[in-house]
């Protein structure tokens, strides 16, 4: 089972091209970040729809912390996030692998030396 209903022979593909506005009902898409425990970073948990920040916050609480997942929440309109482009991934992130000397394992320490 795939939860997908088998395709009927006569079934057309619906037109999936976005029709103008992405917000037909006028509600924004928000990204939710949760701090799981004090002392930890807020971590992205998922997204939801809300008309404004207060409702987004309340919905985030109800949707993403039903099982005690967090102690603090951030909600951010998705449109406010600037993200890196997948096509740039190689130029952004690959060069760091050329600098192994940034890693502690790069350095050999004599066995008899402690606390280093």
């Amino acid at each position: 089972m795939t939860y997908s209903v088998p395709r009927l022979p006569e079934e057309p593909d619906p037109d999936l091209r976005s029709k103008g506005s992405r917000r037909v009902s006028g509600w924004l898409l928000w990204e939710v970040f949760i701090r799981p425990r004090r002392g930890l970073h807020h971590v992205h948990a998922g997204s939801l729809h809300a008309p404004d920040g207060e409702i987004a916050l309340q919905s985030a609480r109800d949707v993403y912390t039903r099982r005690g997942e967090g102690v603090s929440l951030w909600v951010v309109p998705s449109s406010e996030i600037t993200s890196s482009d997948a096509a740039d991934a190689a130029s952004l992130f690959d060069p760091t692998s050329e600098k192994p000397f940034r890693d502690a394992t790069f350095y050999q320490v004599p066995d008899e030396v402690e606390w280093l």
Partner: peptide, 10 residues
């Protein structure tokens, strides 16, 4: 997220 969502329409 934001930009990812728009990117895939290409």
């Amino acid at each position: 997220m934001a930009n990812e969502r728009s990117f895939v329409t290409i």
